[in-house]
Computed example of a mutant assay.
Amino acid sequence: MPLPQPDDDLTSLVLRTDFGDDEAWDALRTALDAADEYTHATYVSDLRFAGVSVRTLLDEEAAADEDDRVIHLFLADPTAMEGPEHPLLAVDLADEPGRTFRVPARWFPDVSANLSIANMDFAEFADAADRSGTFRGFEGTDAS
């Protein structure tokens, strides 16, 4: 079954994989929406993705028709749900399938917008991640 599609070309897919706490899901969405004046996410909360692995997502994507493929997505997994920064797991499904990094809600609009319009490549953000694998902006930007 193909992955869901973002609502439009300017939003990224945020796929819920942790269904243990509806309030945490609401808090994560609130944090993402509050990070910028524009919406950057298409939220999908579908139990078929409960606990899904990156490998399974890659397999589903590989089996999809070319027109139905998703280039990247963000997972709302247990780490994103529980962490105070709500660090989503960004997943590359195209250039380096399976490559990941974390992106806190504060940085999500920047990453989503640039990936959605192909202004920057997934690798540029992943390469700028800190030692924990989390993108917190590029050197010289305000990380507060």
Rank of each mutant, 00 (worst) to 15 (best):
R48Y: 00
S53Y: 02
S116A: 15
G98Q: 10
P78T: 08
R131M: 01
L58I: 13
I71T: 15
A34E: 12
E60P: 00
F135L: 08
A128Y: 04
L28Y: 01
L115F: 08
A63E: 13
S132M: 01
D18M: 01
N114A: 12
L15W: 04
M1C: 13
A118Q: 11
D121A: 14
F135K: 02
T42Q: 01
P109D: 04
V44A: 04
L115Q: 05
E23M: 08
V70W: 02
E124F: 00
F49A: 03
D22H: 07
A76V: 07
T30I: 00
D46K: 01
R29V: 13
A118R: 12
T39I: 09
P78E: 11
F74I: 07
D95V: 15
N119C: 04
I71K: 13
A63C: 01
E37P: 00
D95P: 02
N119D: 14
W25Q: 08
D21T: 01
V111E: 01
L73F: 09
R16D: 03
L10V: 10
G98I: 08
D9R: 15
P78I: 06
V54E: 10
P97Y: 11
F135A: 06
L75G: 05
A34V: 00
A123F: 09
V52H: 05
L28I: 07
Y43D: 06
E37Y: 06
E37N: 07
T79Q: 15
T141G: 00
V70K: 00
F49V: 02
P87E: 07
S132W: 00
E96S: 14
I71A: 15
A90L: 10
L73T: 08
S144K: 03
T30S: 13
H72T: 11
T39H: 07
D36K: 05
A62Y: 03
V91Y: 05
H86D: 03
T134A: 10
A129H: 02
N114C: 12
P104R: 01
S12H: 07
T42Y: 04
E66P: 00
A143F: 00
R131S: 11
A80E: 04
L3G: 08
F49S: 01
R48V: 14
A35Q: 04
V111F: 03
F125K: 05
